[in-house]
Amino acid sequence: MGFKLLSKLLVYLTASIMAIASPLAFSVDSSGEYPTVSEIPVGEVRLYQIADGVWSHIATQSFDGAVYPSNGLIVRDGDELLLIDTAWGAKNTAALLAEIEKQIGLPVTRAVSTHFHDDRVGGVDVLRAAGVATYASPSTRRLAEVEGNEIPTHSLEGLSSSGDAVRFGPVELFYPGAAHSTDNLIVYVPSASVLYGGCAIYELSRTSAGNVADADLAEWPTSIERIQQHYPEAQFVIPGHGLPGGLDLLKHTTNVVKAHTNRSVVE
């Protein structure tokens, strides 16, 4: 069995187990497998329904001669939608809004960016022009300005110390501490036991640490421990890039980060 097929099978099995364990909360999309990078042309966006009122959005972007996937989250909030992270750029984010209108038909009224990198804030200006209120932590807003990236308009308070959590509509926002970046936030959907790890969490097929220019490698494993301790009931975990899975993604990420750190020390 090929690795790609095995990865998709694991996603399907995880979703099936969740649907059985929580039949009222989960209505997993039966329309197909989780979209992969090879299936999404740059400039297009796919939506994948995880649970009743919960979707991931998947886009792709060219970077350094390669094409990478990027995940975000959409959560229903009454007759409105909360968006977590842009679709990595203005063109993708405009396509995301169009796809949401086509498939869901509810307005996106608020959006949260989970850290300051372009795959999370690139497209904020498109959201703002569409009347979406954009939010991020003060740290993310400051770092985005320093980096020359787009800056969300509103500040999220109460997320300055490791372990801080605040309720934001249908989700809980959690600051686990520094990891992929010093400002990275985690998003949890309690009604569906869905954990969105953003770039602080890796997919299972990833074996290298990737972009760690703004990471705190020493603190990252401790931050992941905080996530595990705060959300032990999480059933569906979405990484910032690639295929979702279960809580095993947290341990896998820790292993990859520690291996990278150990290699760096040896070198």
Rank of each mutant, 00 (worst) to 15 (best):
L82S: 05
M18A: 05
A165E: 13
Y188N: 04
F26G: 08
S155W: 11
L247G: 09
A192H: 06
L249K: 01
A94H: 13
D85V: 00
F26P: 07
T14L: 14
I238Y: 04
A133I: 11
I224G: 02
L249I: 05
T222G: 12
A59P: 03
I74K: 01
V28L: 08
I201C: 03
D164G: 10
E157N: 15
I84S: 01
G198V: 04
I227G: 02
G32C: 15
G245L: 01
R46W: 10
D118C: 14
I40S: 11
G177N: 00
L127I: 05
S56N: 11
P190Q: 06
V166C: 05
L82D: 03
A136C: 14
L127P: 02
D214M: 08
V124G: 08
D164V: 07
V194T: 07
H117D: 00
V54L: 06
S62R: 12
T207H: 15
V166F: 07
A213W: 10
A165I: 07
E233D: 11
E99T: 06
N255V: 09
V237D: 01
E225V: 12
Q103A: 07
H154P: 04
A213Y: 14
A192Y: 06
T207S: 08
A213N: 14
H241R: 02
V108N: 02
A213P: 12
E145M: 10
T114V: 00
A144W: 03
T134Q: 01
I186D: 00
S22W: 09
R263D: 10
P221D: 12
P170N: 15
V112T: 03
D77K: 05
V171H: 01
P35K: 06
G123M: 03
N255H: 05
G105H: 15
D29F: 08
Q61P: 04
H115C: 00
E145Q: 09
G242S: 03
R142H: 10
T253S: 07
V187C: 02
T36K: 09
T261P: 15
S113R: 04
V194Y: 02
E219H: 15
G32F: 15
F3L: 07
L106Q: 07
L185V: 07
R142W: 12
Q235Y: 14
A129I: 06
V212R: 13
L173A: 04
W55R: 01
Q229T: 06
D125A: 13
P23M: 06
L73M: 14
A130Q: 15
S223R: 02
L243F: 12
A136L: 03
A144M: 06
S223A: 08
R206D: 11
D118G: 11
A129W: 11
E80N: 15
H117W: 00
T14I: 12
S193E: 08
A215F: 05
K4I: 07
I20F: 08
V112P: 04
L156S: 01
S161Y: 06
D214L: 12
G169M: 02
P176L: 02
F26K: 11
T134D: 04
W88R: 00
S205F: 13
F63E: 14
Y202C: 04
V189Y: 05
R167V: 06
G246F: 05
L13W: 09
H57E: 01
V171I: 09
V67M: 09
D118K: 09
Q103H: 15
S139Q: 10
M18Y: 15
I58L: 10
H154D: 12
A51W: 09
A259W: 13
G245T: 02
T261D: 06
A213G: 11
Q103D: 10
W220M: 02
E101T: 10
K91G: 14
E157K: 07
A130V: 10
H180Q: 03
I58H: 14
V166M: 09
Y202A: 13
T254D: 08
T153C: 14
I104L: 12
H154Q: 15
N255P: 04
L47D: 02
L47W: 02
D79V: 13
S181W: 02
H115N: 03
T36V: 12
F116C: 03
L204D: 15
A234Y: 04
T207G: 11
I201Y: 01
L173H: 04
W220K: 00
I17H: 14
P69Q: 05
T36N: 06
G105L: 15
I227P: 02
S161Q: 15
Y68A: 12
L250K: 01
D214R: 11
P176D: 01
G105C: 15
S22K: 13
A215R: 11
T253G: 00
K258C: 14
S137L: 10
Q61D: 06
S264C: 05
V237G: 01
N211K: 10
Q229D: 09
A51Y: 15
K258M: 13
L73V: 09
E219P: 04
D77V: 04
V132R: 01
A192L: 07
P244K: 04
G32L: 15
S205A: 09
R263V: 10
G65P: 09
I17P: 05
E267V: 11
A94S: 13
T134P: 02
S62D: 11
L96N: 00
A51N: 15
A136P: 03
F63H: 10
V171T: 08
G2W: 06
S162I: 06
A19C: 05
Y68E: 08
S161V: 14
A129E: 09
P41Y: 13
E44Y: 09
A129D: 14
L106C: 06
P69D: 07
N184M: 01
S205W: 10
D77H: 10
L195Q: 01
Y68N: 10
S56W: 08
S30C: 11
V45T: 09
P152R: 01
V166L: 11
A144T: 10
T153F: 15
T134V: 12
E157M: 15
A192Q: 07
P232T: 07
G131N: 15
N255C: 05
L217F: 15
G242A: 03
S193P: 03
S70P: 03
T60Q: 09
L159Y: 03
E39I: 07
G105K: 15
A144R: 14
A87K: 00
I40D: 09
P176M: 03
G163F: 08
A90T: 11
A15Q: 15
R263G: 08
T261C: 09
S264D: 10
K91R: 12
V37W: 09
F3I: 15
Q103R: 11
A136D: 03
S16V: 07
H241K: 00
G65I: 15
G198K: 01
S191T: 11
E99G: 13
A200C: 11
S161R: 13
N255G: 12
P244E: 03
N71D: 03
L143M: 12
S30Y: 15
V187S: 04
S31Q: 09
Q49V: 11
L185P: 02
S205G: 12
A144Q: 04
P107G: 09
T109A: 13
Q235P: 04
V256H: 03
G198T: 04
E33H: 07
A51K: 06
S113K: 04
A59H: 09
G163M: 06
F63G: 10
Y135L: 02
H57L: 02
T140E: 03
A259F: 06
A21N: 05
V256I: 12
P35M: 07
E80G: 14
S113E: 04
G163N: 11
K258E: 14
S208W: 07
V187F: 00
V11K: 05
T182C: 05
Y231C: 04
N92T: 15
T114K: 02
G122D: 14
S191M: 07
V257Y: 03
Y231V: 05
S56T: 12
G198R: 03
K4F: 06
E219Y: 09
G177C: 02
